[in-house]
Design a protein around this nucleic acid. Structure first.
Lengths: 342, 342
DNA sequence: CTGAAAGCGCTTACAG
DNA sequence: CTGAAAGCGCTTACAG
């Protein structure tokens, strides 16, 4: 049982009051420079490290941030999370990582726990596009920023992709191939990003004079295997050449597996485009054509917005008034990256 | 400024003491069942959530765990982290995610911060194999478990891969190709996993009657690009067929890129084997031959060991004696996964 | 410029 | 079985 240096120990060691030591350590103005230096030196010598739990308790606020995404293993979210961690670290915050696996129950439980932990704020992609989580956060008065998805276009603060553009670009690119069938392996249809991309896809087809067919859109693809299964079924029914647009690179990988299994070639038999620009796929042959998304920047921007929002709330709390925060909705620009699969 | 229900509010609402409410909520034995039910119901009704900061402060311990790896974006660590998060969540702990980027300074700073946060324990892969971090953890008396690397074979508690076996299996497999040159693109040579794999590699060559040459081992490969550069240089000097063993799949991907750039084919011109079994690579053609590593299990096991160790310490602290923890060293079995690149 | 004192929300040893 | 009281390590409003 080691014992840790406390403010009290420093105070006793220097024969000053705890108050004075605290002030010196916190850059409080009314303290003589000489005293201050003396105290700082001694603190360093004693390897003093303030007890953040005590401080958080006293100040009724922590430097902890809840970071809730569906799965840290997903290369897309991995990069977003890295961007968040980077910014939060720089500002003295710490990230509590939580995987929701798109499970609303789990997500709301996380939020309850985060409330207990008194976190300063939360970054999240609401699982399956549910509004329960934001309602809870609202109710608990916890600042939050949505990342990669929103619930309503004009509501809340979020940073997302311009999904309409992304879907439009991708579909337009596929149209240029002139294949009769242009499929879209979509994610959960209730989610904003799925909706946006589908809208873009439809508009692009229309602009190209192609009448979209209902069976072209296959919703509910969550991972590689779903992409594989969906593409497999497509290739059983439809003769190549065929075009396939995927909600994510993960899905596109699965689809590519089905294509290769049938001994079809990319892009000749199947013109394939993914989304996300997962780094692995730009190295390997065939290098995947995809929509580039600034994943780290999305994470960083989300983190920065959250910090702003936290500061606004802290200021408001001090003055005991309503936080003057005005929601900000930010869309990031996608980028068409034409490589080898279409 | 919402206000949160406290123990005091419950006590006042029910006209009992704070002590009684606290006991009811914490399953303390001496409390009448009737009272207890009454209090629990009321707490639920009031949506009471204990203030963990206050509780942590009082008990001088938190349910926070520091999780320090080089980069959450690395598919290998992403899976390890997922395994950790899973177990920790189930036991009521929360993970603070920190990326060290193999930077010792950054890592020691993290540990200082974690001490301030009073974390219950730390899981880490010591950056670049440094011993400074464990020394600090020791000094601060913070329970920790090393993951994927150790400092000394018989010291500390860790869960790692049987790297010797992994290196041996991979090299032995390559030997079966009979190519004259058998390269090994290694990671940082000061790290235990690099050493173990190199030893296995050397032994395998010896067992196969191949005299290892110094220039075959290229150390310091950290990422895809390093793998690419190293393989490129190899292919400039050496005529195929050639064999290349890689410390990671990430490095193997880079190497594969260099192979493809030269219009060589796998495994005909270059027999390639990676390590880690990154899921993407089992889907795409050529499907990578690799060494399978139980990444999630490694994370889970590390988390379980840490929890055990934390419990041992808590018990010891209560009794005010030394923790009876005996270090455990666990090695996980690698698995040779022969697919298409060798 | 310095310091005594209150108090953040809990748990727990102790008295009844 | 119930409750009054101390105290965890800090910060901060206040008095001097």
């Amino acid at each position: 049982m080691k014992k840790v240096t406390r403010l009290k120990d420093l105070a006793e060691g220097l024969n000053v009051s705890i108050t004075t030591v605290s002030k010196a350590l916190n850059d409080h103005p009314d303290i003589s420079p000489k005293r201050k230096k003396e105290i700082l030196d001694y603190a360093k010598k004693m390897n003093y490290m303030p007890n953040q739990v005590a401080r958080s308790f006293r100040q009724q606020k922590t430097k902890l941030i809840g970071v809730i995404f569906s799965d840290n293993t997903n290369p897309f979210y991995a990069r977003v999370i890295r961007g968040i961690e980077e910014v939060m670290f720089r500002h003295g915050y710490h990230c509590i990582l939580m995987n929701s696996y798109e499970d609303v129950e789990r997500e709301t439980q996380f939020i309850d726990e985060l409330r207990g932990l008194n976190v300063a704020g939360v970054l999240l992609t609401p699982a399956a596009g549910n509004g329960k989580s934001t309602r809870l956060l609202e109710q608990y008065d916890i600042p939050y920023v949505l990342v990669n998805r929103y619930l309503e276009k004009e509501k809340n603060t979020y940073v997302a992709l311009d999904d309409y553009q992304a879907g439009y670009m991708a579909a337009k690119h596929l149209c240029s191939y002139g294949n009769e069938n242009i499929f879209f392996l979509n994610f959960l249809p209730e989610v904003s990003s799925s909706k946006g991309r589908e809208a873009g896809y439809r508009q692009a087809l229309e602009d190209c004079g192609v009448a979209a067919r209902a069976e072209w859109i296959i919703a509910g693809c969550m991972n590689q295997n779903d992409g594989y299964e969906a593409a497999k079924r497509i290739l059983e029914k439809v003769k190549p050449p065929v075009s396939i647009m995927c909600y994510s690179d993960n899905i596109a990988i699965g689809a590519a597996g089905a294509v290769q299994e049938r001994r079809y070639t990319l892009p000749h038999d199947v013109a394939l485009i993914g989304t996300d620009d997962i780094s692995l796929l730009s190295f390997l042959s065939p290098r995947f054509t995809t929509i580039g998304v600034p994943k780290m920047r999305m994470g960083r921007k989300g983190a920065e917005l959250l910090i702003e929002r936290i500061r606004a709330k802290e200021k408001a709390d001090e003055l005991d008034e309503e936080s003057g925060w005005t929601d900000q909705q930010i869309l990031m620009e996608p980028e068409l990256l034409i490589r080898e699969t279409s």
